Simulated assay, not measured.
Amino acid sequence: MSFLAISFTNKGKSLQAKALTGVQLKFTRIAVGDGSLSNGQDTSNLASLIHEVKSIPITTLKTMTGGKATVGGILSNKDITTGFYFREIGLFALDPDQGEILYSYGNAGALAEYIPPLGGAEIVTKKINLNTIVGNASNVTAAIDQTIVYASPEDVASALSQANLYTDSKVNSKSASDMKITSIAATNILSYTPAQQGNFKIDVYLRVLAAANIIVSVNYTDSTGVQTKIMLSERNGLYFPCSSGIQSYAIGVYYLKSLLINAVKNTPITISITSNVANQVYASALIMGV
């Protein structure tokens, strides 16, 4: 079906003029009906639909450039007991002086679409979007029924984009658990290559079975070039830097001080451990985007 034109009523024009002075332009509902226009009938004087069949709550309102807005709702036949021809449509708004008024109106005439009653072979659910003029009104709102809001394709696309950003932030990580250091040479226990430049938190946990001298280093590239950082263990609540990077560990378990870095994309972040004794140190590590 097609509505060739949806135009202002006189009361709609009056309210739109008020809205340009700062009065709130609040749309209240959409209505559909099966009324027919007589030859040459002027719709600008209408105060209601010719024969309203169903009132539709507003579920979406989107203001656009060029002084336009799209007002949407859902037409269904779930409470229609008698089929009708969807021929006329109206957008209602709240006038501060006159109450609810018919803001704009359209009639499809012979192009009307038949809406069957519930219980037949066809279940009808139609998204209706009315493009209307709001001019330069600065305060455009709608009485939106949140209990029946449907997501538009644009809403779904936006939600998916946000979900992907959230998911990317969560999967932008890698971990290793209880890796045995079997050599006295430097051993890479975890490496992760970020797809995008960003901030990362590095955590390392050591389980030491015999006294050992250990170096825990993190290699990565930031915007200034290749970097190497030494991770430190806690001693009585303090962290003691060591120029050589070597830390002495007695038998026990250790959480190292978290390291925060900014790494560029497509270059690896690598955690390596060097111990002066083999097979006596186990390490767990996490690289996580933050």
Results as ranks from 00 to 15, higher is better:
Ile6His: 07
Ile6Tyr: 08
Ser7Phe: 04
Ser7Asn: 08
Ser7Thr: 15
Phe8Lys: 03
Thr9Met: 10
Thr9Tyr: 11
Thr9Gly: 10
Asn10Arg: 15
Lys11Arg: 13
Lys11Ser: 14
Lys13Glu: 09
Lys13Val: 10
Lys13Gln: 08
Leu15Ser: 10
Gln16Pro: 08
Leu20Val: 13
Leu20Tyr: 01
Leu20Met: 08
Thr21Ile: 07
Gly22Asp: 01
Gly22Phe: 13
Gly22Pro: 09
Val23Phe: 12
Val23Cys: 07
Gln24Val: 04
Leu25Arg: 03
Leu25Gln: 04
Lys26Val: 09
Lys26Asp: 02
Phe27Gln: 05
Thr28Asp: 08
Thr28Lys: 10
Thr28Asn: 04
Ile30His: 11
Ile30Val: 05
Ala31Gln: 03
Val32Asp: 00
Val32Ile: 07
Gly33Gln: 06
Gly33Ile: 00
Asp34Gln: 05
Gly35Asn: 04
Ser36Gln: 13
Leu37Asn: 06
Ser38Arg: 10
Ser38Asp: 12
Asn39Ile: 05
Asn39Pro: 12
Asn39Val: 07
Gly40Glu: 05
Gln41His: 06
Gln41Val: 04
Gln41Thr: 14
Asp42Met: 09
Asp42His: 14
Ser44Phe: 09
Leu46His: 01
Ala47Ile: 14
Ala47Met: 06
Ser48Glu: 03
Ser48Ile: 00
Ser48Met: 03
Leu49His: 04
Leu49Lys: 05
His51Met: 06
His51Ile: 05
His51Cys: 13
Glu52Leu: 00
Glu52Tyr: 06
Glu52His: 02
Val53Ala: 12
Lys54Gly: 14
Ile56Ala: 01
Ile56Val: 01
Pro57Arg: 14
Thr59Ser: 11
Thr59Phe: 08
Thr60Asp: 12
Thr60Ser: 08
Thr60Trp: 00
Thr60Cys: 02
Leu61Gln: 15
Leu61Met: 13
Leu61Thr: 11
Lys62Cys: 05
Lys62Val: 11
Thr63Lys: 13
Thr63Cys: 06
Thr63Pro: 09
Gly66Lys: 07
Gly67Gln: 06
Gly67Arg: 09
Gly67Glu: 02
Gly67Ala: 03
Lys68Gln: 15
Lys68Cys: 05
Ala69Gln: 03
Thr70Asn: 13
Val71Leu: 11
Gly72Ala: 03
Gly73Gln: 02
Gly73Pro: 00
Gly73Lys: 01
Gly73Val: 06
Gly73Ile: 05
Gly73Glu: 11
Ile74Gln: 02
Ile74Ala: 01
Ser76Val: 09
Ser76Asn: 14
Ser76Arg: 08
Asn77Cys: 12
Asn77His: 04
Lys78Asp: 11
Lys78Ser: 15
Asp79Cys: 00
Asp79Lys: 15
Thr81Gln: 13
Thr81Arg: 10
Thr82Lys: 05
Tyr85Arg: 14
Arg87Pro: 15
Arg87Met: 10
Glu88Cys: 05
Glu88His: 13
Glu88Tyr: 08
Ile89Arg: 03
Ile89Ala: 04
Gly90Ser: 14
Gly90Arg: 08
Leu91Gln: 00
Leu91Val: 02
